[in-house]
Each structure stands twice: as C-alpha cells, then as structure tokens.
Amino acid sequence: MKKCHTVFAACTAVLTVVGLGAASPAAGCSRLHVVRPGHSIQKAVDAARPGDTVLVTAGTYHESVKVTTRGLILRGQGRSTVIKPGKKKTANACAENGNGICVVGTKSRRLEGVTVENLTVTGFDRAGVFAVGTDRLTVRGVTAEKNKLWGIAEERSERSLIRGNTVRHNGDAGVFLANTMLTEAGAKDTRGTSVEGNVLRDNRIGVTVRRLRNLTVTHNDVTGNCAGVFVVGDENKPRAGKVNVVSNRIADNNKYCKKTARLPFLQGSGVVITGAEDTLVTRNVITGNAGRSPLSGGVVLYKSFVGTTSERNRVTGNRLVGNAPADVVNQEPAKRHNTFTRNTCGKSRPAGLC
C-alpha cells in the first residue's frame, strides 16, 4: 500500500500533511497518526483506517487501547513507550476487563492483519496484550511485564506471530494461547500460529497452549518461571495436540507457585504435556528444572486432571541435564505410544527412556 506520510497531529480532529497544511489523504494511501504524551492513543486508533499506522512516541500513557480496524499498525518507540492503567473510569471495554491493549474481532468475522510492536505494557489487572477473534495478528518487540494475569494472551485466533517479545513478572502465563477461555470446546486449529524468539522470565508459566492444534513454540528463552512450557488438553473433541516445541532453551524454572483449582503447586517443570496428542518436543536444551511437584522434571507426560491420556507424542533429540526428579518423566502406560528417542539425558522415570 502507498504511503502518504500524513500525520494525525497531537490526536486532534485535524489531519495535516507535513509541509502542506490541512488536506485530505489521497485515495488508497495509508496514513501515519502520531501520538505524543498527554494525548489519547485511543482517539488516534479510532480515527485510523485499514492499513494506517499509529505511532506512539516515547512517554507514559495511562489508558487502555481497543483495536477493531483491520491492518492497523500500533507502534511505539521501544521500551520507553509505556502504557499503564488509566487513573479514571472509562467506557472502554478493554479497560473495564482489566486489559492493556485489546485486538478484537467478532465470532462471525475475524480481525485481520493487526500489528502491535515496540512498546511496553505493564500493571494491568488481566493481560498486557489480549486478542480475540483475530487472523494474522503480529505482536513483536513488546515488553509485557507485571500484569496480574497474562503478559500476552489470545483466544479464537489463527495464524498469529508472537515474536521477539520480553514477557516477565506476570501472574500467570507469559504467553497464554487458548481456544476459548470461558466455555468448554474442542481444540481449535490455529493454522500455524508461532511463538518464537521471546524471552519469558519470572512468570508462573512461560508459555501455556490450551486446547489448540497446529502451532509452534520455537527459539524462546524460558527461564526462572515456575514451569516452562505447558501443552494442555482435556476430554473435548477434537483433541489438543500437533504442537511443535522446537529449539528452545528451557532452564531453571524453579520458582514456587502455590496450587490453584486447576493445578497442583508448580516448581521445576520444563515441558509438560497433559491430555494432548501428536506433539513433538525436539532439539531443545532443557536444564536445571528441579522440584517436588507432581509435574516436576525436564519433560513430563502427565494424565490430565479430567483423566484424558497423552498419546502418540514424540520427545526426540533434546539435551536434558540436571532436571529433577528426572530428565524425562512418563506417567502414561506404554500402550499410549508416546516415544522417547535420541535424547541426551541421565535419568528417567520409568528407567530406560534416556
């Protein structure tokens, strides 16, 4: 799309073309909307058309932002562009639900091609970045920290790219991906969502993939959480699975997190697969994950809490060192056809899997 370099000046209702005074943009052009401290990001987002860019300059902004325009780029100027909760009540549904940035489609029409990049979102009661009903969402270069639930989360979304983010000190998962969060349903095919190249530290869980299929978790640095990567399914159909956990560093996830209604206490879990099928765990370096939780260990296959088995999962070609109670823990019977091959590891439960 042709760039016209127009500016939405100071988030007022005046559209100006740099150097030319007031003007209307040419048909088919994408526009640049610049937001400066003291002005509203939401007003610029509301004024944007498909394909426009909202550039948020360095500074601290106390508001939540709801994006419903396809192809919009919401871009900061790095970590110095900071979005925090607003100080006043607002009618913005994103803020009312406790989220920082919301990217929202509908059940009948997914919101396509939105990008959120190069900014910090912190201190929200729910998620830093939350998406629902999206297609080809990109979240990159975002620092999501100290949010009470999730750093970056999405549901009912397809073909997302979550790349190169720093996600830390969040109350639950750093990155949380699910089919639906409030209702029971079978696993959704994400059609190739990728979580790649992120730093995930000091969260409850680094990455949670819940009741989804066909996605990849790759080249992430997952350290200092209570648990590294969770792949979670249940008794609904279709079953969760076909998740690729590839080439990640998953180390020292030994923080203690107390039990919840859904899980026992967590400590020392590298990769946990529970109630999922046909998942591949390969070429990861998984070290120093140690604890006494039922889910502790380097790679753990665990029957789900509703009794669903994990079947036909493959753990192959990983380097596992110093995990406890073992580098590999398989709590499923052999007839479930989970396989453990070519791993470099020292101890397994049961014996013979290394």
Rank of each mutant, 00 (worst) to 15 (best):
residue 8 F to T: 06
residue 9 A to H: 08
residue 24 S to W: 12
residue 25 P to A: 02
residue 27 A to T: 08
residue 33 H to L: 11
residue 33 H to R: 15
residue 34 V to M: 09
residue 34 V to K: 04
residue 36 R to F: 12
residue 38 G to D: 06
residue 45 V to N: 00
residue 46 D to F: 08
residue 56 V to H: 01
residue 58 A to N: 10
residue 60 T to Y: 06
residue 71 G to R: 01
residue 83 I to S: 01
residue 94 C to H: 01
residue 95 A to I: 10
residue 100 G to K: 01
residue 101 I to Y: 01
residue 101 I to V: 14
residue 128 G to I: 03
residue 128 G to R: 02
residue 135 D to C: 09
residue 136 R to D: 09
residue 138 T to K: 10
residue 192 G to D: 10
residue 192 G to M: 10
residue 201 R to S: 05
residue 219 H to L: 15
residue 224 G to V: 13
residue 227 A to L: 11
residue 229 V to M: 06
residue 229 V to G: 01
residue 233 G to D: 04
residue 242 K to Q: 14
residue 245 V to A: 02
residue 261 A to M: 14
residue 263 L to Q: 02
residue 268 G to N: 05
residue 271 V to N: 00
residue 271 V to Q: 00
residue 275 G to F: 06
residue 276 A to M: 08
residue 278 D to A: 08
residue 279 T to S: 03
residue 280 L to N: 04
residue 283 R to H: 12
residue 286 I to L: 14
residue 288 G to A: 08
residue 296 S to K: 03
residue 296 S to D: 04
residue 312 R to K: 14
residue 316 T to Q: 06
residue 318 N to G: 07
residue 319 R to G: 04
residue 327 D to W: 02
residue 337 H to Y: 12
residue 337 H to M: 11
residue 348 S to Y: 01
residue 351 A to D: 09
residue 354 C to A: 06
residue 354 C to D: 11
